[in-house]
Amino acid sequence: MSVGGMIDQDGRGPDPDEERGRKRRGVRALVYGLIALLVLVLLAAAGVVIVTQQLGSQVGRYPSVFAPIDPSSRPADSGGQTFLLIGTDSRSPDPTTGTDAAPDAVFGSQRSDVIMVATIAEDGQSASVVSIPRDSYVDIPGRGKNKVNAALAFGGPPLLIQTVEQLTAVHIDHYAVIDFAGFAQMTDAVGGIDVNVGQESERDGVVVPAGEQHLNGEQALVYVRERKSLPGGDLDRVRRQQAALRAFLEKALSSGTLSSPTGAYSLVDTVTRHVGVDDSLSNTGLAQLAVSMRDLRNSNVSFLTVPVTGTGMEGDQSVVYLNQTAGRDLWFAVNTDAVPQYVATRPQEQLSDTPR
Rank of each mutant, 00 (worst) to 15 (best):
Q241S: 01
G26C: 13
L289D: 01
F66R: 02
V275I: 10
Q348Y: 08
D353H: 11
R61E: 02
D316N: 15
A243S: 15
T311H: 08
T311L: 07
M293A: 15
F303I: 04
T119F: 00
V148F: 03
T325H: 07
E226P: 02
V306F: 14
S92M: 10
L235P: 11
F248I: 02
A252K: 07
L84P: 00
F154P: 01
P103V: 06
D113W: 03
G256S: 05
M293Y: 12
V208T: 03
S92W: 07
E18F: 11
S266H: 13
T284L: 09
R74I: 01
G98K: 12
F303G: 07
L215W: 02
V308W: 09
E218R: 15
T325S: 13
F303P: 04
V343K: 09
G98S: 13
Q125I: 00
S254H: 11
P347A: 10
R346A: 05
R237D: 14
P209I: 02
D194M: 00
S90I: 13
V65P: 01
D173N: 13
D279P: 03
G98L: 13
V224A: 06
A344P: 00
A44E: 05
A243R: 13
P93Q: 10
R28K: 13
D194K: 06
P347D: 11
D316G: 14
S73F: 00
S255E: 00
D316M: 12
Y265K: 07
I120T: 13
A46E: 10
Y32L: 04
V106T: 15
V343C: 11
P103L: 10
G191R: 05
P158V: 12
P340Q: 07
M186C: 02
S78A: 07
V195K: 02
R273N: 06
G79S: 02
Q350E: 15
L152V: 10
P16Y: 08
S90N: 15
G5V: 03
M313Y: 14
D295S: 15
G276D: 04
A344D: 06
Q199P: 03
G211A: 12
R74A: 03
A169P: 00
R227P: 12
V238R: 02
G5E: 06
L281G: 00
S72T: 09
L267N: 09
R143D: 05
R61V: 00
Q54P: 00
T97M: 04
D188G: 04
A333P: 03
K251M: 06
L330G: 11
G233Q: 08
G108N: 15
E122D: 15
G4E: 06
N298I: 05
V320K: 09
P158Y: 08
V48K: 02
Q53N: 05
N323Q: 11
Q341K: 10
G315D: 14
V190S: 03
V306P: 10
V224C: 06
L37D: 12
L258V: 05
S73T: 10
G198R: 07
R91V: 10
Q219P: 05
A189M: 05
L286K: 02
Q162K: 15
P231K: 08
V65I: 02
I69Y: 01
R346I: 00
G33T: 08
V334K: 14
M186T: 02
G205M: 11
